[in-house]
Design a protein around this nucleic acid. Structure first.
Length: 368
RNA sequence: GGCCGUGUACCCAAGUGGCCUAAGGGGCUAGAUUGCAAAUCUGGUAUUUCGUGGGUUCAAAUCCCACCGCGGCCUCCA
């Protein structure tokens, strides 16, 4: 699902568009002695033919507990050479999705599509593979086995990057608890895509991130400060021409620390701290270079362009009511009737609206 | 039974042997500013303390062992 807090990936291959590649891969695995057709006609990968099986997850074949996942039947297990052997092709004339193959019309095993699509779009050996922690075993383990054995590569991915699951208010998300939010709901409440994005990415990938409404507010404050710094730099750029000889300012220095932190196992929390500190320092250096350094950091965070809450429609009754109350309050204040003005402000707070009196007039936003 | 990750202040979250009398943000708090607020700016906010109990070391949040909590996985859900 594409949401406004994310950018779309540039390649989105479809498993159903590479069935021939999957069939070809199975053929190679069978030819090389890494796969076999069992008594029920199903093609299985022979895990014992690949000694590195289990290295990614730390599992060993003798310690895995057969059937622990609760999704395999004794009937299927009985035909395998080893309980851990996994399905590559299942002939099934009655399945909702089926394609022709040398082993009969049927469908591929679910690990296979990734090996085939990776080889098709990126190469037989790739640099980086990411995924959720729930897929480390068996899925990624099986992809490694298929790709290494099928393509004769010493490794499938040079680096594996597994994110831990997201929790909500300290608890795991579940449908039965109903403790989850959709991006649409949050945006409708006035949450900016920027705040949602930062709340989701700011935790190190190897720890369980905890999504909270308070965290969303915390993120919004950080983003607003960065945004003010950006506006100040934009203004300074308009006033001065570039000065390549100027000593680096806070943003240029922060960029170094920022990159250094990211190079240390994607330490985004430390990178964000560097940016925060720079925003607290007095501006110096060439504003053009400073603005470029901030933009460079934001190319990773990608929040400054998303820091806009969804506006309620102009004809929305809620919006009309808020603006009417603000007009009444301004009139009361103009008459120095502070009590009336404060009473109206209390009404607005009650409605979930935060107002701000500035030199350019009064602005309002929904309270998140 | 086994494997993987994780546990730091009120909250989020860095730090993986000495520069830690523990970064950064939020919150709270005092001040500046404001009619009062909000926003903004300035200061304060973990002093044998880093899940618990042992151990190693001149030195441990950081290393070792055990235990506890939380999250994930064990091959036909993708």
């Amino acid at each position: 699902m594409a949401i406004e807090a994310e950018a779309d990936p540039s390649l989105m291959p479809r498993p159903t568009a590479c069935i021939p590649q999957m069939v070809a891969l199975i053929k190679r695995l069978v030819e090389r002695g890494h796969a076999y057709v069992a008594g029920d006609g199903v093609v299985y990968f022979d895990v014992r033919s690949f000694p590195a099986y289990g290295e990614l997850s730390g599992n060993t074949l003798d310690q895995l507990r057969e059937g622990e996942g609760g999704r395999i039947s004794a009937e299927h297990q009985a035909v395998k050479r080893h309980p851990a052997d996994f399905m590559l092709w299942k002939p099934d004339e009655h399945h909702i999705m089926k394609w022709p193959s040398p082993w009969g019309a049927g469908y591929p095993g679910w690990h296979l599509e990734c090996s085939a699509m990776a080889a098709m779009t990126l190469g037989e050996r790739i640099d980086l593979h990411s995924g959720g922690e729930d897929n480390i075993f068996p899925h990624h383990e099986c992809e490694i086995a298929q790709s290494c054995c099928g393509f004769g590569q010493p490794a499938f991915a040079n680096h594996w990057f597994h994110t831990r699951h997201l929790q909500v208010e300290g608890e795991k998300m579940s449908k039965s608890k109903g403790n989850f939010f959709t991006a649409r709901d949050l945006f409708a409440k006035g949450v900016t895509p920027a705040a949602l994005r930062l709340e989701l990415v700011r935790t190190h990938y190897r720890t369980n991130a905890n999504f909270t409404m308070q965290g969303l507010r915390d993120c919004q404050r950080m983003i607003d400060r960065w945004s003010r710094t950006q506006q100040a730099l934009d203004a300074a750029v308009g006033l001065r021409s570039a000065d390549p000889s100027a000593v680096p300012g806070p943003m240029a220095r922060a960029l170094e620390a920022f990159v250094d932190a990211l190079c240390d196992d994607l330490n985004l929390a430390r990178a964000i701290a560097a940016l925060n500190e720079a925003c607290g320092e007095e501006a110096s250096g060439c504003p053009h270079a400073e603005r470029a350094a901030l933009a460079r950091m934001d190319s990773v965070l990608a929040v400054l362009d998303r820091n806009v809450a969804h506006e309620a429609p102009t004809d929305d009754p809620f919006r009309a009511k808020v603006e009417s109350l603000i007009a009444q309050r301004l009139a009361a204040r103009a008459a120095k009737d502070w009590a009336a003005g404060d009473a109206i402000r209390a009404q607005l707070v009650e409605l979930g609206v935060t107002i701000k009196d500035g030199p350019q007039g009064t602005t309002w936003m929904r309270t998140v």
